[in-house]
Design a protein around this nucleic acid. Sequence first.
DNA 1: CGGGATCCGTTACGATACTG
DNA 2: CAGTATCGTAACGGATCCCG
Lengths: 218, 218
Amino acid sequence: MASRRTYRLLCPIARALDRVGDRWTLLILRDLHAGPARFTELQQGLPGLASNLLTSRLRQLQDDGLVRHEPGQHGTQLYELTKEGDATAPLLYALGNYGSRFEPADDIRRPGNLRTIVVNLRESLRRVVVPEDDAHVELVVDGESFAVRIEGGGVTVRYQADPEAPASIAMDYEPLIDVVDGRMPPDRFMAEHVVVTGSQRAAMAYFAVVGRTLTAEG
Amino acid sequence: MASRRTYRLLCPIARALDRVGDRWTLLILRDLHAGPARFTELQQGLPGLASNLLTSRLRQLQDDGLVRHEPGQHGTQLYELTKEGDATAPLLYALGNYGSRFEPADDIRRPGNLRTIVVNLRESLRRVVVPEDDAHVELVVDGESFAVRIEGGGVTVRYQADPEAPASIAMDYEPLIDVVDGRMPPDRFMAEHVVVTGSQRAAMAYFAVVGRTLTAEG
DNA sequence: CGGGATCCGTTACGATACTG
DNA sequence: CAGTATCGTAACGGATCCCG
């Protein structure tokens, strides 16, 4: 029983799809790149995903070694990526990069959740960062905070507030997606949709790096 | 009717999956990267894919602008990638790269077909080639030929014979996958599974480039 | 024979309800 | 909160049939 539907082809692409090709699976992984999450958090961020399916997908991901299930702090359960699961980052980046060439349908305004930002932003920054770059800011998107640090050629993005960051950069999700997708010019985005508080210098250091991701080839 | 199942999320990853996330779709695209193909060719290379599903997938891909359908030479029909479809190459490369970390099940020996080689090989080479590289060989895998040219920093791989290539390099598919996946050391692969005919120098020029793809980070 | 369309049984998905 | 159970619907897979 439960003999999963697989392609059974001797091709690396087919073998990857046997692990991550089912409906919802890549979106679950996408959200887990923002850090460990509970069952209910995942479900809330993925509207339309039934609880039984989420159970099934998480079990599959655990069987394949992409996700680990650990008891959390006070009786809670947390799902988190294993090393194998974390290695899906370049794949998700390529997917997001490809998807940005298609306009969203007019009536779609739901981010689903903001965890989606982490893997895209982190991988984008990683591809343009140089060892000399140095930035530390808090990003606030639709009121939710992300801690971004760039130093020594490395990039970390966490889905959590960062009161110690010298600058805070606030924006809404929808214009952010518009500029990432290339539908809004960066200068207009900066002028109309971004609010910086705190150190302007710190914010500029961040913008210098993130600006490179926009001009870099798709 | 036909109101497709979509995620309806304002996230580039979800939008990509709305186009290429259905079962078989990415494998069909994979094969089309080797060049235009007929309905039956595609079906033969994808064991288990029913003809009605292939029809449905091809129609979807056309509606989304990834595939074009043109009357071929003598009454035949050819499906080929559009520019948007061709842009899935980095995505398929990332998938293949990720899939190579999972061992195939013991009883899987079917390549499905050899078109699968083209997009993987081409994208791998493109990532390591430098303008000084210059190579021209014919690859023969399980008896089927691929023309490989590297020059001026560009790479082309075609699924066709190339009698004018100064060197021909023959191998079987299964050991090729083993070395790509990292289960077989390259030197053993070269010693036991590769047969070069023609110019040794031309073959060496190719091996110099392809060797870099194996040591390059996954 | 290539290029599908039709039919039908099986599996997967999606929504809701329910439980420890 | 974190799932399990149930059930109707949609998608898939295999076979057969049709048409130029």
